[in-house]
């Protein structure tokens, strides 16, 4: 072989081989598992090939469908508000004023902080009896709100915490996009008599398209896999109202120890995610 051709693999090879060993092989194994029957009680007697039975069981399981719907609901609501707030924050931070770096850093903190700690802190903040939020509400003369113990409210709480947690991430990505836009465009639009709102709608938004898509892709990937915050905030409850898909797989795989069932359901997650990403990448491609 031509040494010129081998050279790149001298650099890329070690990383790819490592990734292959720690990822491709395990994923292949769980793919195999998903067509077999592996439970903690029976695996010593042998692991039977069951074809698509696990997949069939997952899809026909009402809890799985429920988790999927819960996750999509969460995904939609959280991302919607994160983009509204994120865009607002990005536009603010794109202005020129003193202390811009300082504010940018402070606003960024929630997304850097350990999710486990966030989940626990908000669990206390939203506690019905002694949480600070309800104390404040009672102080203002209203009734305390059962944030974490009523179905719809628990879902809203998970969404609110996620908005608090990651709006700044969306803001950061949009801000990076905003900073690449040239000021001249706005100047000439102003001369042509367009209002600030018009320049935002017809100049900023279209030019930010790629930043918006990237932020959207990351948020879809991240909300779809969310685990830490709901696990600690609500533990998927009350009565599975906030049992996101990762929590569902966790319950089957590591509390009931049905690993083949967990493999099948997690592969369905991968398929859904790949469809999503392929779809978003297509939109990307169309423009660039």
């Amino acid at each position: 072989m031509n040494p010129k051709k081998i050279e790149p693999f001298f650099y890329i090879g070690p990383a790819l081989i490592t990734l292959f060993i720690i990822l491709v092989y395990p994923l292949g194994y769980s793919f195999w598992l998903s067509f077999h029957n592996w439970t903690l009680i029976t695996f010593r007697e042998g692991v039977d090939f069951v074809a698509l039975k696990n997949y069939y069981n997952v899809i026909s399981n009402i809890d799985f469908i429920h988790s999927l719907l819960v996750t999509f609901l969460f995904m939609f609501a959280a991302i919607l508000f994160e983009f509204i707030f994120g865009m607002g924050i990005a536009l603010l931070l794109n202005l020129e004023f003193k202390g811009r770096n300082f504010f940018r850093t402070v606003i960024l903190l929630p997304m850097m902080v350990t999710n486990v700690v966030i989940g626990l802190t908000w669990r206390l903040l939203l506690n019905y009896e002694y949480g600070l939020v309800n104390k404040l509400i009672k102080f203002l003369g209203f009734n305390a709100i059962p944030w974490l113990s009523k179905t719809a409210l628990a879902m809203s709480s998970v969404i609110i915490v996620d908005i608090w947690n990651t709006s700044s991430f969306v803001a950061l990505l949009l801000l990076a996009g905003l900073q690449t836009l040239s000021k001249d465009l706005y100047e000439s639009a102003k001369i042509d008599g367009s209002s600030k709102f018009q320049s935002f709608m017809y100049i900023t938004l279209p030019l930010l398209k790629s930043s918006i898509l990237v932020a959207l892709l990351w948020r879809i990937i991240d909300t779809f896999r969310i685990f830490d915050v709901p696990y600690l905030l609500t533990a998927g409850g009350p009565s599975r109202a906030t049992e996101m898909i990762s929590l569902y797989v966790y319950r089957y795989g590591f509390q009931n120890f049905n690993l083949s069932y967990a493999s099948a359901s997690s592969y369905l997650m991968v398929i859904i995610m790949l469809i999503f990403s392929a779809f978003l990448f297509r939109i990307f491609r169309k423009d660039y």
Partner: peptide, 26 residues
């Protein structure tokens, strides 16, 4: 090049809960 670069990103798309099931048994 492009293909491998994309392939190295796939782990970012796969949810951790999917990766952990086989890692656990291994």
């Amino acid at each position: 090049n492009r293909l491998l670069r994309m392939a190295s990103l796939i782990p970012q798309i796969i949810p951790p809960i999917t990766i952990i099931v086989p890692l656990f048994t291994l």
